[in-house]
Each structure stands twice: as C-alpha cells, then as structure tokens.
Design a protein around this nucleic acid. Structure first.
Length: 282
DNA sequence: CGTCGTTCCTGCTCGC
DNA sequence: TGCGAGCAGGAACGAC
C-alpha cells in the first residue's frame, strides 16, 4: 500500500532515469487507468506522444512528471500501482505502456486498478505550482513548507476522530492507514479520540510522529532503490522493517508489553496498544 | 458547510 | 474439495 514514503521512493527513482527522455510510443491497455483523464485514452495518448519529460514532483501520495515544462502527467498508485522501468517480460496487469527515446519502457502496472494517470495544467497554490487534480491537497509532513502548528489549529476545530483527520488529505496529506496507526502509537494517542478534545501539544506530537516515521521509512526505502525496476508492491525495504503497531494484533507492545489490539474503524483495521493508547470514554 | 458512510476493484485467505 | 464470504484500503461521491 503505497503511502508517502513509497511514492517518494518511486518518484526519486524515476527522476534519475527519465528526466530528459522523450516519449516515443504509448499504449493504454485498460480504460480504468485513465478514467480520471477528461479527454479519455485517445486524448491522453495523443498529448503524451512526443512529449519530453523535464522534471518530476510529488505532494502526499500523488506524483507527477513534468512534460515540456508546462504540463503534468499526474500519477496515483492507488492500492497496488507500480511504475516499472525497463523491459520487464511477462508482467501481469500492465495498464499503460510507453516507450522512451533511449529504448527504455515505462509501464504502469496495477492489479486492483485504483490508481491511474491523467494530464493536467499547473496552477499556483500558496506559492507552489501544482497540477490541478492535486491543488486541493494539504502539504505533507515532509514538505519543507509544512506548517505543523497551522495543522494543529485546524485539528483543534475538528469534531471528528483524530485518525479520520490524519487520513483526510485536505488536512495533512501523505498519511495512509499504516502510517496513521504508527504515528498514533508513537504519540500514545488512540485514533478514536476526538481531534478537538486533544491538546495542542498532543496534536503536535501526533504530527511530529507522523513526520518521523515517514522520514525513517523514506530513508530505508531510498537506500534500497538503485535498480531500474521500481517496485512499490509491498516488497520495499520499509515493509520488511518492524512496524510497532500495524499488523501486530495479539503481539506484545514494544513499549509496555500489552497485547496489541485490532479494531474495525472506518471500514478498515486499526491497530493500537490498549495500555499506551487508551480508548476514549464514551 | 461539516461530517460520515458507501463504493470502486482483484486476489488471496479462511471457514463450513 | 469447493465455494462463497471476508479482507486489504485511497479517495471520489452522495447523503444528511
């Protein structure tokens, strides 16, 4: 499940190999992969053909390639998306394939088809140039201009569970279910607590923990990447690292020893320590 | 407007 | 053994 660190590893890996390259062929093999592109597959292919990749960018879980310094190819990996570089034989679930002018193939592979590509213009938002589909996203915790205290103030006004807010990409971007659980565990806060009921220092601690755990994951994923094959299908270095909360149901909390608990929350699983992260009284 | 539940999708695991 | 239910979950969307 690619969240911010995994997406950044892919972006950085792609960047060093494809900037300066021109797209010489493209085939959209599955319409769902371009469903967000208003002009459809034909338009996307026509506009990509011949374009030169002049840069890359990212905000939260979205990344993009800059085309001819003016257009963005916005990529979202969804649940299972991969950007594969190089001639990879017999890869299943190839949704879009392109050829670059140095002979490399750049393919979008996505088993569960939650991800996709779309072309968009850039707009100026709060001093940053962003593709329009990304313009509504808040800055992520690894953005140099991320304003933690401003996000704390937003959270103080939210009559909603803190975990729900961590997953709201318009509040803070880049955090998914795994890193939300990890950040809450580190900060010792139960995700079911109301954001507005938490103190400013507590909220700040949660956001700092999110930034820390994602920075650590990025450092690990970044060091393990040096191949043309960009893999974000859950096999990256980060997932081999020991998580503290996510997926550890019944195992001892690394801090206090209590068995980690799993609960249904927002139609997904939440993992937390019942002692370090006591549930709010209802 | 703020908040929250539903839905999209495929492959794997589990229980009967 | 076979098969259906459940599960994984980011984000758009509709409901209230």
């Amino acid at each position: 499940m690619p969240e911010l660190p995994e997406v950044e590893v892919v972006r950085a890996g792609l960047h060093q190999h494809i900037v300066g390259r021109r797209i010489t062929a493209i085939e959209v093999r599955h319409p769902r992969a371009v469903r967000r592109h208003l002009g459809g597959a034909t338009d996307l292919a026509a506009r990509l053909l011949g374009a030169t990749i002049t840069g890359t960018g990212r905000r939260g879980k979205y990344m993009w390639l800059v085309l001819d310094d003016e257009l963005a190819l916005v990529v979202h990996l969804g649940m299972s998306g991969q950007m594969l570089l190089g001639g990879v034989p017999k890869v299943e679930h190839i949704r879009i394939s392109t050829l670059l002018d140095d002979g490399l193939e750049l393919s979008f592979v996505d088993q569960r088809t939650f991800g996709g590509w779309q072309l968009a213009e850039f707009v100026e938002v709060d001093g940053s140039a962003l593709p329009t589909p990304v313009a509504h996203l808040a800055r992520d915790p690894l953005d140099p201009r991320f304003d933690r205290d401003a996000v704390v103030k937003v959270l103080r006004r939210k009559n909603s569970e803190i975990k729900r807010q961590l997953l709201d990409q318009t509040v803070v971007s880049g955090i998914g279910n795994i890193y939300a659980d990890e950040a809450l565990w580190r900060a010792g806060v139960n995700g079911a607590r109301q954001a507005s009921a938490l103190t400013k220092p507590r909220l700040a601690a949660v956001l700092d923990a999110a930034a820390e755990v994602m920075a650590e994951a990025l450092a690990q994923g970044g060091t393990s990447f040096d191949s043309l094959y960009v893999n974000v299908n859950g096999q990256s270095g980060y997932f081999e690292r020991s998580l503290d909360a996510y997926g550890r149901e019944g195992r001892a909390c690394r801090r206090c020893g209590a068995p980690i608990r799993r609960e249904k929350f927002m139609n997904r699983s939440s993992f937390y320590c019942p002692r370090c992260q006591p549930r709010p009284r209802r």
